[in-house]
Amino acid sequence: MLEFLIQNNIVCHAVEAMLFASIACSVLAVVITQINISSIGFTMAHAAFAGAAVGIFFSINATLAAILAGLIVAVLLGPLSERAKISPDTALGVMFGMTMAIAIFFIAYMQSLGRGFDASGLMFGDVVSLFREEIYGLAVISIVTILFIIIFYKEITAIIFNQKIAEAAGIRVRPVYYAMLFMIALTVALCINIIGGLLLYVWLVTPAAIAVQFCNSIKQMFIVAPIIGAIVSVSGALTGLEYGLPVSPLTAVLFSILFAAAIILSPRRRISMRKE
């Protein structure tokens, strides 16, 4: 899609993939960090990782397997996280351990069978060997994510503000909340090949964590976070490919450096010395 800008086909596809993946993830990152369900994002990322590993092992569609695993987590953890009825920490801890174990089991086993190459992209991401369909899929999911936020803006912002007050106000909290978990599961599953199961979490948190340092309203956050995510991810892809560095880890490091800088520069930390 961006061939008119970038002549090199491989670089072009890598940039496109990172651009779309980062937009979808950063938009959802605002939701995830603001409702304080980072641990759910974390667990879903790893469930998708495990699902994809299982998929590759049994030579079934890895993306479908990842989507399925993410949805199972959404169904299992949704009721726990809703209204913060029960502290989901323990359940998430167990689930996280289990998904990591499943993922590592199959990846290690594949390595011992000499199929390790199949799985390394899953762990660390791979922006080079992508199918055209995968990039289209990412473009679609990034648009769907943005549309989802726009269409359910009232409900999503009210849920972010306070789930109990949203419910008391007569807002349909449950269907929107579950739709949100569903969107996260879908996005995570589609991004896992590009960004890698071990690093995906960075995209689901850090762009929003940076944006919140400079934004006063939720609307600004929904705009600024994906812009930050896209700029960092595209820069990471271009730099990585130019110098032959692993793209996804490099970008994750860039995110963290930017986050540190944001914390230091944040106007939120300034104390006014004025006397009136």
Binding site: I171, S217, R268
Partner: peptide, 18 residues
């Protein structure tokens, strides 16, 4: 740090009816 102003919160009272 809650990114909602007084106006935002009062407006949310209207959302259920919409």
């Amino acid at each position: 740090l809650t990114p909602f102003t007084v106006r935002d919160v009062v407006m949310m009272g209207r959302y259920g009816g919409l």
